[in-house]
């Protein structure tokens, strides 16, 4: 049976892992390859690596860090942040990424998703959707709007319609982040996840708001997520990946408990 994935996310700026509350108050959390290897050993099912600085002159640094990370962590690596063309995606894959995640660039040009999926296959194309509740952070009745640039810019796009559009364009997976919940520790936005997982047939990765293992359980059980992503709770050693998976397994969710041989 297919396991539900637990995915640590590394937010990277200037070649270092950082964490703040969504792009502000960034603190240094370490060297990406070192953290990625630690997580792989601890049982990470995949690593997501988001280049949050994405400065044009930082591309060389990013590719070098991706390659060093891919050489040390023998689990899949998804890289996102600032990829705007088929050529740039090719460069990131050549550096050692297995999948590339598109956010703002996909909203601006869904044709980019189509071109990349045709060239590299849908399984390598992830569309990241940052969504915010229209009626207010605690009220799902107005639906969700797509925002970009870490929540600073509203697009007017309906998040559920965009989820369907992104899949139609060729996305093989969606990474859905609740901007209302991100950095708050209030738990994943499970109504948002459920609304999206009911509409699309590709795997959906839940993101934004985890503070404990029970949040991971809710994202899967209530939200229908195929994978669950978190950053700071792992970086700060508040919970280990093994702790989270043990709680998920106890709740009846299929997870990969053993890294090596014995289960």
């Amino acid at each position: 049976m297919l396991r539900v994935r637990v995915i640590p996310c590394l937010d990277v700026a200037n070649g270092r892992v950082v964490k703040g509350t969504r792009f502000v108050d960034l603190t240094d959390e370490g060297d990406p390859p070192t953290l990625a290897e630690r997580y792989a050993v601890e049982g990470a099912d995949e690593i997501v690596f988001l280049d949050i600085d994405a400065a044009p002159d930082g591309r060389g640094t990013l590719l070098e860090v991706v390659e060093r990370t891919a050489r040390r962590a023998f689990v899949p690596l998804t890289v996102g942040g600032g990829v705007r063309s088929v050529t740039e995606m090719h460069d990131v894959l050549r550096a050692g990424a297995d999948k590339v995640s598109f956010n703002t660039a996909a909203v601006r040009d869904p044709g980019l998703v189509r071109r990349c999926a045709r060239r590299f296959g849908s399984q390598a194309v992830v569309v990241a959707i940052d969504a915010r509740r229209r009626a207010g952070p605690d009220d799902p009745t107005g639906g969700w709007e797509v925002v970009v640039k870490g929540g600073r810019d509203a697009t007017g796009l309906d998040a559920l319609a965009w989820a369907e559009g992104a899949v139609a364009a060729g996305a093989g997976e969606l990474l859905v982040t609740s901007i209302d919940r991100d950095g708050t520790g209030a738990g994943y936005d499970t109504p948002l996840l459920r609304a999206i997982t009911d509409r699309v047939h590709v795997p959906v990765i839940a993101s934004g708001g985890a503070s404990g293992p029970e949040d991971f359980v809710a994202a899967v059980r209530d939200g229908g997520a195929s994978a669950v992503l978190a950053a700071s709770i792992f970086h700060r050693h508040r919970h280990s990946i093994a702790d989270v998976k043990a709680v998920m397994a106890a709740a009846g969710i299929p997870v990969r408990l053993a890294i090596g041989t014995a289960r």
Binding site: M1, L2, P76, G172
Partner: peptide
Amino acid sequence: LPHIGWNQVERQRVHPLFAGIEEDADFYFV
């Protein structure tokens, strides 16, 4: 679909490719 993630590989016969690997080991698919 796509089938993305770790899943079991149910072996139908013994083969040296899988020597030393537990019967229920998970491998990554995409």
